[in-house]
Nucleic acid binder design. Structure first.
Lengths: 184, 184
DNA sequence: GGCACCATGTAATCAGTTACATGATTCT
DNA sequence: AGAATCATGTAACTGATTACATGGTGCC
């Protein structure tokens, strides 16, 4: 039950239409909570019917017409409640690690090319995060809000750093294995 | 489409019944691909009807009776195919980072207790992984299979290390903020 | 017989993905 | 008028979660 709260957060930061939200989910928010436009429109409908958000009065309701939303007090209260509530971490799932374990059991080195591809993707993501850090978080002018946001970005940077290092290490291991034989 | 392959991998390592698989998913495999017994039984049925696995001949089919499965050649081939196929990484989702961003916008420190709880959980997981590393991966006797498995375990250890460090850092940031005021 | 535990399932629901549909606006 | 793009949706499906149901075995 996180998507509605992701949308509430985004709308608190700045009232937006569905498409604008979609674009923002492709950038900042999507870095840790991705969503497609279909999900977003469906959820905007729910949030409105629950009284958590409302369309800006200036926007008349019509298909193909832009409709921007803002958060109502009830929505803000719900967001604060959810933020403070205790939540168990979701069970972790990682297809790449699973595939590596599978590769160990079927004895395949066919996964190597994809490891390299993932390494490139993570390197690119890391570079993007670092660019954001330089642009948006200069050492001076740090409000409490800025510090929390920087903390979140730091998690992204450190995670991508971990993956690039791990994949790099994995690839050298595989290079070794190819030399000594991998068949079961 | 990873659960069937997770089950195939587990069954390749050792033929098992549904409940035994469930227990193994609570331990080793579940560390990067969790599944409940309901999912597992459903998937075992599918895999059997597709001819990827079969019940061991010794087990007669009856409700409440143990039924162990083994992987057939077709299942092994499917697993090898899937292992070598290219797959895009799934979009990342992390509720805790989302909540932190939400906290920044509603100005709440109520999330602190849960950060501490998550820190404890990650510390415990890290300790468990390290224990497994010491028990199952002594420096000597390293077959290629062992090296790949160690690599996977290393990913788990490094990820948990990252989270404990990050959460620790986050908590000190929050301690600072409480001193200077966090309200928006 | 009653209870705990082993073992296998069914059903309902929910969140996320994929494919497709439709209207409005702007540019040529 | 046609094409591109902006903008909002519908529908079908898949995977995962939650709650519940049922039978079997061993033990007291």
């Amino acid at each position: 039950m996180s998507l509605p709260h992701a949308i509430l957060t985004a709308l608190m930061e700045k009232p937006s239409s569905g498409l604008e939200l979609t674009r923002r989910f492709d950038r900042s928010i999507g870095y840790f909570w991705s969503a497609t436009h279909q999900q977003i429109y469906r959820e905007l409908g729910r949030l409105e019917s629950e009284g958590h958000i409302r369309a800006l009065p200036s926007d008349r309701p019509a298909r193909g017409q832009k409709r921007s939303y803002e958060v109502l007090p009830a929505g803000r209260a719900e967001l604060a409640r959810w933020t403070a509530a205790s939540q168990d971490p979701k069970p972790y799932r990682d297809a790449l690690l699973l595939r590596l374990r599978a590769a160990a059991v079927v004895g395949g080195t066919g996964i190597e090319a994809d490891l390299r591809r993932h390494l490139d993707l993570h390197r690119a993501q890391l570079a993007e995060y670092r660019a954001i850090e330089e642009r948006d978080f200069p050492p001076d002018r740090v409000t409490p809000q800025d510090r929390v946001r920087h903390l979140v970005l730091r998690a992204g940077i450190d995670l991508e750093t971990f993956w690039t290092e791990w994949l790099d290490h994995a690839l050298t291991e595989f290079a070794d294995l190819d030399g000594t034989g991998t068949a079961d």
